[in-house]
């Protein structure tokens, strides 16, 4: 039971991060139908910038909360500029090109950003300075740390804020209008270039916060960290229904939970000594070791992609996505 609660807590934590990153994929897809494969690298740059700033201030005697805040305050504008530049330099010139061209460009930008980060921050992982006390609370036999609570609460706050922005402000309505029909939005006076740039900047701001969260949670950042995180968040966006905001949030949380629970239980489920059909055959080894585990928690990275494959096979429009035919 406690392992269940523990894995739910862990899953909610990583799921919140996936959700923030997935929102970036889905918003950009919504307005220009592009999968911005460089989005994971924006998360990485956010983590790297934050850790560099926090590392530089760690010995300054400032209160830890102020140092962390300074890290976020530098990572966000840095990522927002990066998001704007990506759109302006890499994608805007290809706005009317066949859809494969910007997609390949996005993969190219991902590789370029990784290697620029390699040049700036070296190939060694950056360690997150231990400036924060991380109190651990106990819930029903499971542990939740202050960092985990912070990640979950801040993610929720950002998702509420984004929803408010998109549904209640003039710019937010313009983003949704542009996502639905860029020509009609232009007739209403919406400058599509501004809306698209704004979307990239908002996505990048959320990616920056997600980067700081990942860095704080795992205590480490590396120039390749954005790749896997980006692919998982993309899977989360597809799971929820790409282009759909609520879908990205749901998909992120669900993917985090699936991953944590699967990782938590895969050892138990694939322990051959628990399966009567083969346990007799393996009786000697079971008696000696107690377990013959086929797959352990090192299979963690697999589950996100199993989910992605399952969605693409059984429900390509995602959980909350609309059928493509509706747009005819």
């Amino acid at each position: 039971m406690d392992i269940l609660i523990q894995q739910i807590i862990n899953g909610l934590t990583t799921g919140s991060v996936y959700a923030l990153v997935a929102l970036g994929y889905t918003m950009v897809y919504g307005v220009i139908q592009l999968i911005n494969f460089a989005h994971g690298e924006v998360v990485m740059v956010g983590a790297m910038v934050a850790i560099s700033v926090i590392g530089a201030l760690a010995g300054s005697g400032l209160p830890p909360a102020a140092i962390l805040l300074a890290g976020v305050a530098c990572a966000m504008p840095a990522c927002m500029c990066l998001g704007y530049l990506l759109e302006r330099v890499a994608y805007r010139p290809l706005r009317h090109a066949p859809r494969l061209a910007p997609l390949i460009t996005a993969i190219g930008m991902s590789i370029i950003l990784q290697h620029l980060a390699l040049l700036v921050w070296s190939r060694n992982p950056l360690a997150f300075p231990q400036i924060l006390e991380n109190p651990v609370f106990s819930i029903g036999g499971a542990a939740i740390s202050g960092v985990q609570m912070g990640i979950i609460l801040l993610s929720c706050a950002m998702m509420v804020g984004l929803t408010w922005f998109v549904y209640r402000t003039r710019f937010g309505v313009a983003i949704r209008a542009t996502a639905e029909n860029v020509h009609i939005a232009a007739l209403m006076g919406v400058d599509a270039n501004r809306v698209i740039a704004l979307t990239f900047v908002i996505a990048a701001a959320m990616a920056a916060v997600a980067g700081v969260m990942v860095g704080t949670y795992y205590g480490i950042a590396h120039y390749t960290m954005g790749f896997m995180l980006g692919l998982k968040a993309f899977s989360a966006a597809v799971l929820g229904g790409i282009g759909n905001l609520a879908g990205a949030m749901l998909g992120g949380i669900l993917l985090g939970l699936v991953e944590a629970l699967a990782t938590g239980y895969i050892g138990e489920v694939t322990d051959l000594c628990r399966w009567p059909i083969v346990s007799g055959w393996l009786a000697e080894r079971c008696a000696a070791d107690g377990h013959v585990v086929l797959m352990g928690s090192n299979y963690q990275e697999v589950f996100a992609f199993l989910v992605l494959i399952a969605v693409l096979v059984f429900r390509p429009s995602g959980l909350l996505g609309e059928r493509v035919a509706e747009r005819a």
Binding site: E180, H183, A185, M188, G189, V190, D191
Partner: peptide, 30 residues
């Protein structure tokens, strides 16, 4: 195209072109 409406020239396009996923009030707001 987005500069014209501000100068008082507005097109109601063929096939209406309302934003189906926006509310009536949001459409009017646009």
């Amino acid at each position: 195209p987005h500069a014209l409406i501000g100068e008082g020239m507005t097109l109601v396009p063929e096939g209406r072109g309302v934003f189906a996923r926006l509310t009536v009030a949001e459409n009017l707001g646009m």
